[in-house]
Design a protein around this nucleic acid. Sequence first.
DNA 1: GGAGAAATCATACGCAAGGATGACGCGGGG
DNA 2: CCCCGCGTCATCCTTGCGTATGATTTCTCC
Lengths: 144, 144
Amino acid sequence: MLIFGLAGGVLVTLLQWTEFHFLVLEHSVAIYGALIAILFAGAGLWLGTRLLAPRERIVEIAVPAVPTSRFDADDNVRERLGITRRELEILKLVARGLSNREIGATLFVSENTVKTHCSRAFDKLGARRRTEAVQRSRELGLLS
Amino acid sequence: MLIFGLAGGVLVTLLQWTEFHFLVLEHSVAIYGALIAILFAGAGLWLGTRLLAPRERIVEIAVPAVPTSRFDADDNVRERLGITRRELEILKLVARGLSNREIGATLFVSENTVKTHCSRAFDKLGARRRTEAVQRSRELGLLS
DNA sequence: GGAGAAATCATACGCAAGGATGACGCGGGG
DNA sequence: CCCCGCGTCATCCTTGCGTATGATTTCTCC
C-alpha cells in the first residue's frame, strides 16, 4: 500500500513534467495515455502476481495406501458406540441395500426383529434414516 | 481474450472522445492519465489474478480412497446408464443420507421433483430402494 | 418450426420404514 | 437368586418412500 502510494506521488510528478513535453505534439495525449495504460497494466500485473500469487490451493490427493489391516478394527468402533454384534450384522445388510424383510429372511428372524435392531442401531449412530446410518457407518469405519 | 480486445477498442474510442473535452481544462491531462492508470492497473491486477493459475500445493491426505482411479469416469458410467446429470446430482445427496425433503431444500426444488428424479434413477440402476441404489452406484463407480 | 429430451411440479395411492411400547427367554455376573 | 444385557417378537401408529400419471417449460436438434 505504501509503495503504491509513493508510486502515485512519483507518477503525479512525472506527469507534471512530461505533459509539457508532450503537449506540443499532436496526438500526444493518446500516446501519453497509452504509455500510462501500458505502464500501469504492467504494474497491476506485477502486483497481482507478486501480492496475490502466494495463494496456494490445497489439493487433496487420494492415497491408496490405506489397506489398514482392519479385520477387527470395526469391532473397536462397534464397542465404542455400544453397538452389539447383531446390530452391526444387520447394519452391513442394510448397507448392501436389502430391505428389512429380506434381512429377516437372510438371518432367519422376523421383520419386526430387524426393525428393532435397526432402530437401536440408528439411535446409537445418531441417524434417522437407513441411508444416513450407512453413511455414518462408512465414515466411522464400521463397514469394510 | 475477445472481451479484452473489445475493451481495448472501446477504450481507444473513449480516449479520442474524452481528450477533446478534457484538453480545454487545465491539468486535465493529469486527471485523464490518472484515470487511465487506475483503470489499467485494475485490469492488470485482474489479469494477474486470473491468468496466473493459482499455484497448487499438493498435499497427500489419507483418504478412504477407493482404488478406482476414476476422475471423470463416473461421467462415462453415467452416460452409459442413461442417467442425467441432475439425477446423478440427486443420487449423490441420497448417498449422503439426506431425505427427499432435505434434498429438495438443498437444491431448491420441490420434494416431488426429487422423488421423480429418484424414481427414474432407481429404475435405470435396477434398484428398488434408495439404499440399493447407493450400493449399486458405488459398485459402478458413479459416486466418488 | 416441430420433435424430443430434460427438468420441474402436482396429486394420489400403497407399502416400507421408523418410533414407541411391552413382553419373553436366555445367559452371565453381582 | 435376581438383575441386566441381549436377542427375539408383537402391535399400533406416523412418516417417509416409491410409483404412476399428467402437465408445463425450456432447451437442443433436425
